[in-house]
Amino acid sequence: MGLAKRVIPCLDVDKGRVVKGVRFVAIRDAGDPVEAARRYDEEGADELTFLDITASSDGRSTMIQVVEAVASQVFIPLTVGGGIRTLEDIRCLLHAGADKITINTAAVFNPDFVRAAAERFGSQCIVIAIDAKQVSQEPNRWEIFTHGGRRSTGLNAVEWAQRMAAAGAGEVLLTSMDRDGTRNGFDLALTRTIADAVEVPVIASGGVGCLDHLVAGVVEGHADAVLAASIFHFGEYTISDAKRAMAAQGIEVRLPKMGKRSDQ
């Protein structure tokens, strides 16, 4: 009995609509973010993550409105990421109702950004997003990639995770670029290596195709939380299906109460 492993649906948002990239190229439309957030909340999601994949700057203000609308209706932690470059970006999203901000590419190009953000807003709201790709086996080596997985930085993913945690990131969102969109399951070796190497919690991401993959992410990958998108968006599985499957394997989860809220 104690701290529950978290199940986090991820909503990729482009111009105010939820979409999901398959290997970040093909994109399918999966709905309105506020409706999706409400549904996930009712199903028992432990947090919600929004990744803003909007390219244009005027489209980005739409994300602020999405966050404001969701934060007025859904009372669980909201994480927002995608294109965060400045302390002002973070301040605006926190002010709109986000609880945590993920920083990805900006940290690669300016490692002090994470330190500055953690000092200003607190480690609890700074998540370092790591997109890693395996570049060798025996020994395993993963490197940080940017630009949707197209560009290598040459940075060792394990060392980078440790460095960012030391700089003040309170959590790691770890995505395997080899697995993202494949539905073949998390890269468990990558997840376990990083989860065991840092003191902060690690969210496993990339590749979930079935509920057993979520179980494996925790049991074999040592993840503190598991993140998935497409298996939830299209109604294949609910969040409560995921929680029940994890509980059946002995993983401690926050099981949702059935039915609507009685206090509203």
Binding site: L3, D46, E171, P201
Partner: peptide, 15 residues
């Protein structure tokens, strides 16, 4: 206190 079995921060849903 640091402990390999427990992450810091204590983050998530606890009883």
């Amino acid at each position: 206190a640091p402990d390999p079995a427990r992450k810091i921060p204590h983050m998530g849903w606890n009883q």
